[in-house]
């Protein structure tokens, strides 16, 4: 009894609140990045698909760079170079910008895969019905392609949520940074990391479950 009481003394209820607030910031920065990165990524994916030569010569290598350079390096580089080109960005804006581009680079390939998944004969059929290019895209290619690559997109989104922890290196107080602060103060790394892990789980689990539900509904 004595020892377990002792074990908890460093960690107060208020600290839980502090972590909760940080979790909300993780949710905010990843939500914004995933949403805008997805919009941008779909646009890039379409460009990769349509502009075969232009896309593979210019856009594809750029996206490859963003996909392959470790996120932490991108963050630090961007944070330090932004002021040089006259951008004064706080850690949040900087982190959101880098995460958005990173998400877009990942989503671009997913989106292109989705368009490619809709076979040419099917698209000919919709054009033969008098649909325009964009009607075919909106009513046929998008819904079918989306169902095909949705699991891959969920993977990207959950990955970005976890990777948003790296924004802590810029000093943005999201979940991981908050945990580090608490660990320094309380010297209770296991407990605090466990609580932080539980928060990450609580953020991703509903998304994953919701995705499962959607997939089940589509696969009838």
């Amino acid at each position: 009894m004595e020892s377990s009481l002792n074990f908890f003394t460093g960690f107060k209820v208020l600290d839980l609140l502090f972590l909760g607030e940080a979790a909300a910031r993780t949710l905010l920065i990843s939500g914004i990045s995933i949403a805008s990165g997805t919009v941008l990524g779909v646009l890039f994916g379409w460009l990769l698909y349509e502009g075969r030569i232009f896309g593979s010569l210019t856009l594809a290598p750029v996206l490859d760079v963003f996909r392959s350079v470790p996120l932490i390096i991108q963050l630090v580089l961007f944070y330090n170079f932004a002021p040089i080109i006259g951008l004064s960005l706080d850690p949040f804006a900087c982190g959101a910008a880098v995460l958005t581009i990173y998400t877009a680079a990942l989503v671009a390939n997913v989106a292109r895969g989705g368009i490619e998944a809709v076979a040419m004969p099917l698209r000919r059929a919709s054009r033969s019905l008098g649909m325009t290019y964009w009607q075919d895209m909106m009513y046929v290619v998008a819904p079918i392609g989306m169902r095909t690559v949705f699991p891959a997109w969920v993977g990207v989104a959950l990955g970005v949520m976890k990777d948003s922890a790296l924004v802590s290196v810029l000093g943005y107080i999201e979940l991981l940074k908050a945990s580090q602060i608490l660990i320094t103060r309380t010297q209770e790394p296991f407990l605090i990391l466990a609580v932080a892990g539980a928060f990450y789980f609580a953020l991703s689990f509903p998304v994953a479950r919701f995705a499962d539900r959607l997939e089940q509904r589509w696969s009838q």
């Binding site: 004969p121 099917l122 000919r124 019905l129 008098g130």
Partner: peptide, 15 residues
């Protein structure tokens, strides 16, 4: 194309 209905070898329903 509205005047020209077309049916293909592969049925191509929207799944």
């Amino acid at each position: 194309r509205r005047k020209l209905g077309m049916v293909f070898q592969q049925w191509n329903s929207f799944p």
